[in-house]
Amino acid sequence: MSEDLHRRAEQLKIDSMAGGISAPDLQWLGAHLEGCPPCAQRARAIERAVRTLRSVTVRVDPALLRTTRMKVYVRAEDLNRRGARRLLLWTSCATSWVWMAACALFLWHGFERLASQMGIPNWLWQAGFGLWWALPLLIVGIVLSMQQPAVNNERDLTAGLD
């Protein structure tokens, strides 16, 4: 019998264990294994290898589970707290924008009058007006960027739970 046939039998046996093979291949394999004791022995060795692989169990340390649960709770609390803080921040930001939009016309005239009284050039007070609008967003940006190191610190703290 050709070497290729034995190799094919081995390949099909592994494929049948790994993901299944077509019915004609399975039939061919069965017939080949019946007539070829060395291949049948190899097939048994393959089955044994897979069985051995499936027999391994791993124990998880209960202390690891406790620590993991605790870390998850700490992190969940932290995320909720930060979520609530962020919501508050965006709500105040949105409120101030609405309020500013409502009184934009008065503000524009106020800026204009003040600038003309103080002799401030147009481009400067108009830039100031723009900055006034961007102020809530700037504050949000600053607060959020300040929160980032705090997150890292909290991660360091939870590392101590081990």
Partner: peptide, 17 residues
């Protein structure tokens, strides 16, 4: 994936033998 499994089983089988 198939070739990795094939190689893995082939080596494992030989090692067990």
């Amino acid at each position: 994936v198939k070739s990795r499994i094939y190689r893995g089983i082939a080596i494992l089988k030989e090692s067990l033998e």
